[in-house]
Design a protein around this nucleic acid. Structure first.
Length: 432
RNA sequence: GGAGAGAUGGCCGAGUCGGCUGAAGGCGCUCGCCUGCUAAGCGAGUGUAUGUCGAAAGAUGUACCGAGGGUUCGAAUCCCUCUCUCUCCGCCA
């Protein structure tokens, strides 16, 4: 959420911004409501002052057994008027808040202006695109041939866009989770967190998924609860409504969670394989930092995520999202895209963002330095470290051998009992 | 799911029959004094949000005692609804 005062004072900038994103927000209405709200507030407050003073006087009069009838009748009217003003006021505030909650963050000045992902500048590249003496296969073929990914049975169990990992597939996924968590906790100083996978409306609003993106979420029937679309939501909301000590900052958290996304509106996109699933695993990195340090922290967050790919020997590039491709809550985002030889394309495997105080304001996460009285909003950041399913995809496609087996990345071997090669997992075929 | 108890400031903990209670008292913390050092002692201060005045220091208004609503001139105190915590029973990994 943007600061009301900021919007008021920078209405032109905000307008340009929302127009560029083709958002339908009535900012003139916003200005009008803001003025009305302040007028109402002023009137209500001066009446309340009057009521408080006279009420005290009434108490005195009663104590002295004197008559207070005229004061009381006068205040009856004042109270009625206050009630009316308060009602109008909360109406205006509600409307203002709705507009604010639907207003996206302002991009950082270093973000390139552009309209789509084609305009995202490439920041860096790492690793060699592997050469194959044969035609590399896409992971869905590899996975099914090795009997480690079963899409058919998953759709029987649940439906489309779910996957069943079997044997070495399941083992590899678990190994990746452990590998990532160990790297971030042992070497990058993150505290491991295992949060609830179901959150309430307030948490979803705090990080910016609600109210605008309800259709992307799975909601529990009969509750105001949602399945998390990313660990960002529960982990960022750990400190919802808290005032942190500056000396405790920066806070680094890492969490493994499954992520649930309805993928509404993505029909026909990535329908094969496990690139786009309703449920996938992710190890997330979340930071709470001071405003002064947040952009430096973003660079380091990116490096922490990149290191996972480097240790796994997977080639990737980093792009910086342009203004048109930037997410709702982010001020700046780097996407890491891993190379998938089976599909001959780069696919997003991590997204590292600085939200500045956008989420902190929504979730009311502040900090205070020792001895000083003023509180400030923290800056929050998060990044995937990494999307586990897509990492598994990248390993299958980049490490595939001509005989159909998979060489395992050296860095991962301690997590899979030292095996250097994955071959066919035994499968039970039905006779139909 | 059933029965009961509770929710007050950084923490503990008072708040009588509704009225100088933003909230006693204690602890903690900050600053100052005192003191060979430490400890103890003494004094002052110590919430958040937002508005107004002020260059600033600061002064001042309003709101906030789990959340929302109601009664009242006036509510932490009375009434209603909800949420959460705890205890007991049931069920369950």
């Amino acid at each position: 959420m943007l600061d009301l005062k900021f919007v008021r004072e920078n209405i032109k900038k905000v307008k340009e911004q929302t127009e560029q994103r083709e958002l339908d927000l009535d900012l003139d209405e916003f200005i009008r409501l803001d003025i009305e709200r302040r007028d109402l507030l002023q009137e209500a407050e001066s009446l309340k002052f009057q009521r408080n003073t006279v009420s005290e006087k009434i108490a005195m009069l009663k104590k002295e057994k004197k008559d207070a009838f005229s004061e009381i009748t006068a205040m009856q009217e004042v109270s009625q008027r206050i009630k009316e003003l308060d009602r109008k006021l909360s109406e205006k505030e509600y409307l203002l808040n709705q507009i604010l909650l639907n207003m996206p963050n302002m991009p950082h000045s270093s973000v390139a202006v552009g309209y789509s992902e084609k305009d995202n500048p490439e920041i860096k590249k790492w690793g060699e695109i592997p050469e194959f003496a044969f035609k590399p296969k896409p992971h869905w073929d590899i996975g099914e041939e090795l009997n480690i990914l079963d899409f058919e049975r998953a759709s029987k169990i649940t439906g489309a866009r779910f996957v069943l990992y079997m044997g070495w597939g399941a083992r590899l996924e678990r190994a990746l989770i452990n590998f990532m968590l160990d790297l971030h906790t042992n070497e990058h100083n993150y505290v491991e967190v295992l949060p609830p996978f179901i959150v309430n409306r307030q948490s979803m609003t705090g990080t910016g998924q609600l109210p605008k993106f309800e259709s992307d979420l799975f909601r529990l029937e009969g509750y105001d609860y949602y399945l998390i679309p990313t660990a960002e939501v529960p982990v960022t909301n750990i400190h919802q409504n808290e005032i942190l000590k500056e000396s405790d900052l920066p806070l680094y958290y890492t969490a493994y969670t499954p992520c649930f996304r309805s993928e509404a509106g993505s029909y026909g996109k990535d329908t094969r394989g496990l690139i786009r699933q309703h449920q996938f695993n992710k190890v997330e990195l979340v930071k709470f930092v001071t405003p002064e340090s947040s952009y430096n922290e973003l660079e380091n967050l990116l490096l922490d995520a990149e290191e996972v790919l480097q240790r796994l020997g997977l080639p990737y590039r980093v792009v910086s999202l342009c203004t048109g491709d930037l997410g709702f809550s982010a001020a700046k985002t780097y996407d890491i895209e891993v190379w998938l030889p089976g599909q001959e394309r780069f696919v997003e495997i991590s997204s590292c963002s600085n939200f500045e105080d956008f989420q902190a304001r929504r979730a009311n996460i502040r900090y205070k330095s020792e001895g000083k009285s003023k509180t400030r909003f923290v800056h929050t950041l998060n990044g995937s470290g990494l999307a586990v399913g897509r990492t598994l995809v990248a390993i299958l496609e980049n490490y595939q051998q001509e005989d159909g087996s998979i060489t395992t990345p050296e860095g991962l071997r301690p997590y899979i009992g030292g095996v250097d090669k994955i071959e066919k997992t035994r499968n039970v075929k039905s006779e139909k």
